[in-house]
Amino acid sequence: MPVPETTPAPPSLTSPVIDCEPPAYLLAPPSAAVSRAKTCPTPTALHRPGPRRLRLVEHADHPPHTEATRFAEAVLRRVLEVVDRRRPPAQLRPLISPQVFDTVLALPPARQAAAATLKRVRLRAAPGPGAAEVFATFTRGPRVHAIAARVELHSGRWQLTALQVG
Rank of each mutant, 00 (worst) to 15 (best):
30 P>Q: 06
57 V>M: 09
159 Q>D: 00
52 R>W: 10
143 R>H: 13
84 D>T: 10
8 P>T: 15
17 V>Y: 04
144 V>R: 14
64 P>I: 02
8 P>D: 13
71 F>S: 00
4 P>R: 09
102 D>R: 14
64 P>Q: 01
90 A>K: 06
87 R>V: 12
53 R>N: 11
102 D>T: 11
121 V>D: 08
72 A>D: 03
61 D>H: 13
148 A>T: 15
119 K>Q: 14
85 R>L: 15
126 A>N: 01
29 P>G: 12
122 R>A: 12
26 L>M: 09
16 P>C: 10
134 V>Q: 07
131 A>D: 01
149 A>T: 03
12 S>Q: 12
147 I>A: 10
83 V>T: 10
63 P>R: 06
1 M>I: 10
38 K>R: 15
18 I>V: 14
106 A>H: 09
78 R>C: 13
17 V>A: 14
58 E>P: 01
104 V>E: 04
46 L>P: 07
3 V>G: 07
29 P>W: 02
9 A>P: 14
162 A>S: 14
80 L>D: 07
17 V>F: 10
107 L>Y: 04
92 L>H: 04
156 G>R: 06
163 L>M: 08
138 F>A: 10
4 P>Y: 08
131 A>T: 05
7 T>E: 15
150 R>G: 00
126 A>G: 07
65 H>Q: 10
84 D>V: 08
154 H>L: 07
62 H>G: 02
22 P>M: 00
166 G>V: 12
16 P>Y: 09
79 V>A: 01
7 T>W: 11
29 P>E: 11
50 G>F: 03
112 Q>I: 03
6 T>H: 12
121 V>G: 05
165 V>E: 12
93 R>W: 01
142 P>Q: 13
84 D>I: 05
94 P>C: 00
166 G>M: 12
99 Q>G: 09
106 A>N: 11
12 S>T: 13
47 H>Y: 13
63 P>V: 08
103 T>N: 02
36 R>Y: 07
163 L>F: 06
124 R>P: 00
149 A>I: 01
102 D>H: 09
118 L>F: 03
139 T>R: 14
14 T>P: 01
34 V>Y: 05
56 L>I: 05
38 K>W: 07
157 R>G: 00
120 R>G: 00
136 A>W: 04
108 P>A: 13
146 A>F: 11
5 E>H: 11
59 H>R: 14
49 P>L: 15
74 A>K: 07
160 L>M: 02
29 P>Y: 06
21 E>C: 07
79 V>Q: 00
150 R>I: 00
58 E>I: 01
70 R>W: 05
36 R>C: 07
153 L>E: 12
148 A>Y: 06
54 L>T: 15
50 G>V: 14
31 S>D: 15
107 L>S: 09
125 A>E: 04
123 L>Y: 03
136 A>Q: 00
100 V>W: 02
54 L>N: 05
150 R>S: 08
128 G>V: 01
73 E>R: 10
105 L>S: 01
99 Q>H: 07
91 Q>V: 14
67 E>A: 15
